[in-house]
């Protein structure tokens, strides 16, 4: 079995060419592709690791921020709660004050209404009592009420005790024509009664008395003598004042007590 040396040489050359061609068209491209893929995968893995690290970092930042937000929220909530509580208390106090003020105004108004009503009742009662007294006196006596009043006034003048008499006497002494003693009457005093009272005064105090007569309807009935700050009076108003006291709610309470 001979060896064909030309064929050997040709096959040697063929094989060398084949080695070069295979290296050129097979091994290098395939190995390059594998290397490129490995590089790509390594890059992707690195990118993934970087992304993961970044994600973890962001998660940590997020958690920290979240914690901060929660703390801030709690703080704000606490502040808001405190503020609301304070505001509520303030409003409550204001409401209470307003209620107290309203209550006071209402009480004042009620008191005023009560006072007005009371005064009206007193005035009406006084007029009624005066009218009744006038009619009764007129029916009972044949002298006028005014005469009777003068008589009572003179009678009271005579009934004064020594101290009061001395005090009033001193006061009347100081009177003069320029500064006379003032005799106030609820009605126009007739000259006869004026003269009777003048005579009774001069007789009681033993001295001339300068007297000025004035009409004062608010006395309702009766007479009032005033000189130098001293006063002698007998009026229906005094009785009515006592009646007024008796009619007042306080007096009622006391009476009830």
């Amino acid at each position: 079995m001979p060896i064909d040396w030309f064929t050997v040489g040709a096959q040697l050359l063929n094989f060398i060419i084949l080695v070069w061609l295979m290296k050129r068209f097979l091994y290098q491209p395939v190995l390059n592709a594998i290397a490129a893929r490995e590089h790509k995968i390594a890059a992707e893995l690195a990118a993934a690791a970087a992304s993961q690290a970044k994600a973890q970092q962001q998660q940590q930042e997020f958690e920290q921020k979240n914690l901060g937000f929660e703390q801030q929220r709690d703080s704000l909530l606490r502040q808001a709660t405190d503020a609301a509580k304070a505001e509520g208390e303030r409003l409550l106090a204001e409401g209470r004050q307003a209620a107290d003020a309203a209550s006071a105004v209402r009480a004042t108004a009620l008191q005023r209404d009560s006072d007005l009503l009371h005064a009206e009742i007193v005035r009406h009662t006084q007029q009624q009592v005066l009218a009744i007294a006038r009619r009764v006196l007129a029916d009972l006596a044949d002298v006028s009420l005014e005469q009777q009043l003068c008589a009572v006034f003179i009678q009271r003048l005579h009934g004064l005790d020594a101290t009061a008499l001395a005090t009033l006497g001193n006061a009347l002494k100081a009177t003069s024509a320029a500064d006379p003693a003032l005799l106030r009457s609820a009605f126009d005093l007739p000259a006869q009664q004026q003269a009777a009272i003048q005579a009774a005064l001069e007789e009681r105090f033993g001295q001339p008395v300068a007297l000025k007569v004035e009409t004062a309807p608010e006395l309702i009935g009766g007479l009032e003598l005033s000189a130098q700050g001293q006063k002698l009076a007998w009026t229906i108003a005094d009785y009515l004042d006592q009646l007024s006291l008796a009619l007042s709610p306080g007096a009622d309470g006391e009476a009830g007590a």
Partner: peptide, 26 residues
């Protein structure tokens, strides 16, 4: 021998060249 060697070389090289012409790296 030489002819079949050339044929084999042709198949191997052309086949490799065709496949590696568009290699994917993905």
């Amino acid at each position: 021998t030489i002819l079949f060697t050339w044929a084999l070389m042709l198949v191997l090289v052309v086949g490799a060249a065709l496949i590696t012409r568009r290699l994917a790296t993905g």
